[in-house]
Amino acid sequence: MHRERNKLRAFFLNFLPGAGHFYNGNYIRGALYFLISFGELFISFLLGGVMGEDELMGLGLAAFVLLWIVSMLDLLIGLLKNPSRPANPMDFVDPQVPYEIKEIRGENERFQIILLSFIPGLGHFHMGLMQRGLSFLISFFGYMTVMLFLTGVTSSSAFLLLFGVLPVIWLYCMFDAVQHIHRKLAGEELRDRSLFEDLEAGREDGKRSRVLATLLSAFPGAGQMYLGMQKRGLQLMLLFLGSIYILDLLRLTLLFFLIPIIWFYSLFDGLQLVSSYGREPLEDRPVIEGFLNHQGWLGAGLLALGMYYILANLAIPALDARFPEWHLQYRVNAYLKTVLVSVLLIGGGLKLLAGSRKGGVVKRKGGPS
């Protein structure tokens, strides 16, 4: 009888070309992959060192990588073409099935699910969870299509930053598939619910998924909004995306260091809220307190931004075409950024100084007489 092999172990062993084939019982194929891969690599490096040709070493390394890819694809095709008997939850309580066979069958099915889940949704399809797999498939590729469409239509590279959501969806899909296969092997009944039905059920029960909240925290504001803190999440999201847009529009590269600061602040804030969720009540406190009291400053900022946009994209090009000897476009590009950054830094410094003086006065008034 053909001995069952652990496919996951064969897959990782084959990171050394040929080792996975050898473990699977294909001794000739495994030996050929090993000898050809390392043989050509050794010969190319030997000849390259003797002749002083770095290009020959590079070609040998490229050939080694190509042979490694071919070896991995050959192994994967063989593993998927000849699937072993799928794990049955009843096998784990059947005393006639040896323990080693139970473990191998369970690991083999985990391997198939993990491998298929590299394309979001396929692992769920393999387990018969059609609605759940379809929701992951549509979420991943639908979001990718929308971002590519917006990038192409607007000709703006700023939308490429939003592609950071795709790894979050992919990781959550992978984690969800592994979690479901563990439940299946434990004998639990799997319910074919879409991702959106899970969110609705969590909302009805008053509970949120800590894992999903942690993954969503990778995008500023999304984790906070998922946990029910709409004001805080919306402010962080507007602060992050608005800063990217404004700094890119005004070409203020000097202030781009603010973007990772906002991102890290939002990430650690989300992780802190996730750790506190369920143990203590969460208060939806906005990041900027008294936001309504700063509507005047916000309106003035939007008005100034609109005037700058009209000036930079309409008035200056028209005047530069009418009076080329003035070199207006060059002067704006050369000096306007310096003026804007200087005004922002000086204005921010004066605001902080004024606030510290007021705080000192209040402290003296509140002291003992």
Rank of each mutant, 00 (worst) to 15 (best):
E100V: 10
I244P: 02
L171N: 09
D94L: 03
E53F: 11
Y143C: 14
H294L: 13
S356P: 00
G25M: 06
M51C: 10
M127E: 04
D269Q: 10
M1T: 07
P17D: 05
G221F: 09
V153I: 13
M147T: 07
W170G: 03
V168N: 08
D320G: 12
L160Y: 02
L238Y: 00
W263S: 09
M130L: 15
M72V: 13
N14E: 01
D269G: 11
G270M: 14
R105N: 07
G52I: 09
H2K: 14
L250V: 09
G367F: 02
G133I: 09
L345Q: 00
Y33G: 01
V97M: 14
G52P: 02
G164T: 14
V146W: 06
F22K: 07
R285G: 06
I246M: 05
L41M: 14
K351N: 08
D284V: 02
L353V: 04
F38W: 12
W68N: 12
S139W: 04
L185H: 15
F175Y: 08
Q230R: 14
R364S: 04
G106F: 11
M174Q: 11
R132D: 00
F45N: 12
L271E: 11
A304Y: 03
F111E: 00
G366F: 05
H124R: 02
L267R: 06
N293T: 06
L239H: 03
S194H: 01
S37K: 06
L66K: 07
R105F: 07
A63I: 09
L8S: 11
E200K: 10
G152M: 10
S71D: 14
L148G: 07
Y335H: 15
L314I: 12
L59Q: 14
L56D: 05
G52T: 14
V93K: 11
Y23T: 02
H327S: 13
L249T: 15
K7L: 13
G306W: 00
S156C: 03
S155V: 10
I138S: 11
I246T: 12
I346R: 01
G25L: 04
L161Y: 13
G359Q: 10
G270L: 10
G233Q: 01
Q235W: 02
V361I: 12
D176L: 00
G20Y: 00
R3D: 09
L8E: 00
L267G: 09
L258W: 07
Y27S: 09
L344G: 10
L254K: 03
F42V: 15
T253K: 13
G360A: 14
E100Q: 10
G348P: 00
L336H: 05
K231I: 04
S275K: 10
G233R: 01
L80D: 08
L161R: 12
I316L: 12
G348S: 02
H124Y: 04
G202L: 04
R210A: 14
L215F: 15
I119A: 12
